[in-house]
Design a protein around this nucleic acid. Structure first.
Lengths: 82, 82, 82, 82
DNA sequence: CTGCCATTTTACCGGC
DNA sequence: GCCGGTAAAATGGCAG
């Protein structure tokens, strides 16, 4: 890395950084698209917060979900929540 | 043929969820690409940690520039310059 | 605001900004303390993620909680999740 | 006298939750104070939006300085300067 | 496997 | 009073 300044390495580095930045721009654009879909859904009366929760659950395996619920239940009882 | 379940347009909901899930897949693919570029850079001897720091600095400079412009805008508006 | 530069208003502004920044420092310190408690809890074997969920639930009114659950349920059925 | 519920030290859990909740109350109080300062500033004719922008710029400059130092550190280490 | 960093989610504030 | 954007918190993922 010490020869990076003014050498071939510097060009390579710039190239890598450029590629990354461009990809990040693309990624950001898609994130925008996602936001727009949510916004559209909201405009037709859907609750986006619930939609997000639903998406999370869809990604989760069932046993994983059950496990979490049980643990939460246990903690609630331990904390004295009825 | 929108089937309503409990007052919810089921088809519309499914469509939104589908679109979002597909966009998320695309986004993830780009994230993978970024990772690969880093990995390639690492393979040619670059320090990814330094690369990341450079990227954050570059982004911050850009962001700062933007903030300053916005501030100037606000000032002008506050001063009655339309 | 246009007389702000070099006038009394500038001093007032600085004073406000200072007060705010100091308060933000205090706030941040407390946030650190909270993190430390979580970290301590984790060290004695508790699952901090579940603890956070529990805290959220404790802050929520019961009817509010029920409402959200029912809505989620409705959406799940609408989306065809069994 | 730690009572165990399902293998959970109930007293310990309650204690952690209490400490966290109290700290959160303190934090919230400071947040209120900050709000009051903004409100006071607004009352004397300042534009809170501009104030917020200034604060973000100030924070960003500080942050950037820090990042640059860290980057320099990294460079030196990469160059074998310990 | 632990700590760090990015992304995501949540809460807040100001405007309409 | 809602809604949009903006800052803080929390979750998840990654490198070391």
């Amino acid at each position: 890395m010490t020869e990076a300044i003014g050498g071939i390495a510097a060009d390579a580095l710039k190239s890598y950084l450029d590629r990354i930045m461009n990809l990040e721009i693309e990624k950001k654009a898609i994130a925008e698209d996602i936001k727009m879909v949510f916004s559209e859904a909201k405009g037709t009366g859907f609750d986006t917060k619930i939609m997000r929760k639903l998406l999370t659950l869809l990604k989760m395996e069932e046993h994983e979900r059950k496990e979490q619920e049980e643990l939460l239940d246990l903690y609630m009882r331990a904390a004295g929540v009825e």
